[in-house]
């Protein structure tokens, strides 16, 4: 499809550019003035030292939850890989002879390069074993392999948050999404679910 050429003629004041530059500066200076006199609603933040609080329903990186007794909640029922439209979840099921849950995921990998953050896996889970409530949006790595989040990584995901992250950001993670009871899973190093 050929794009139409911009054929808008510049008006007299636009063609000199000077007026337009001043208009832009006025907006910028307006923010400066607002930030000085209305510091409760600061318009810019000092990322990454300060982070914007995400809305409660924001879907960040997945985490896997543990039961109060320390076992993994997931029973490898395969509902999430079945419902996943990006086919990014790979689970290998195994049997745990000592666990009343019988079945557990030997491995649980999510290819974050393929994930589209739709949250269907969370909705499909009958055991509340996977959540996307971490609000972690910096999902990055130096190679493709590290973009596949593994079971141990996702269990300990909350611990990986940097301690220097702002209090507001950490506090924001202590509220469970509506409809979920906060799990009392004893994750080493302070659990924030």
């Amino acid at each position: 499809m050929a794009l139409p050429k911009p054929n808008k003629k510049l008006t007299g004041s636009e063609s000199s550019y000077l007026v337009e530059v001043i208009k832009g500066m006025v907006i910028t200076l307006g923010h400066v003035v607002k930030n000085i006199f209305d510091q409760d609603r600061f318009r810019t933040i000092e990322y990454p030292d300060v982070r914007k609080p995400m809305t409660p329903r924001y879907r960040g990186a997945h985490r896997l939850l543990l039961r109060p007794d320390g076992g993994i909640k997931c029973v490898a029922c395969m509902c999430c890989p079945t419902v996943c439209p990006a086919r990014c979840i790979t689970i290998v099921a195994g049997e745990n002879p000592n666990d009343p849950a019988e079945k557990f995921p030997v491995s649980f990998d999510i290819d974050m390069l393929r994930c589209i953050y739709c949250g269907f896996c969370v909705e499909a889970c009958p055991k509340d074993a996977i959540r996307m409530d971490t609000k972690i949006y910096e999902i990055n790595a130096y190679n493709r392999q590290d973009m596949v989040h593994s079971k141990p990584y996702m269990i300990n995901l909350m611990d990986r948050l940097k301690p220097e992250a702002s209090e507001a950001y950490r506090a924001d993670h202590t509220t469970a999404p509506a409809g979920h009871t906060p799990d009392e899973a004893p994750v080493a190093g302070g659990h924030l679910g």
Binding site: V75, A76, C77, C79, A101, E102, K103, P126, K127
Partner: peptide, 8 residues
């Protein structure tokens, strides 16, 4: 038991 049942 559907999540862990092979029949499901």
């Amino acid at each position: 038991d559907c999540p862990i049942c092979d029949q499901s």
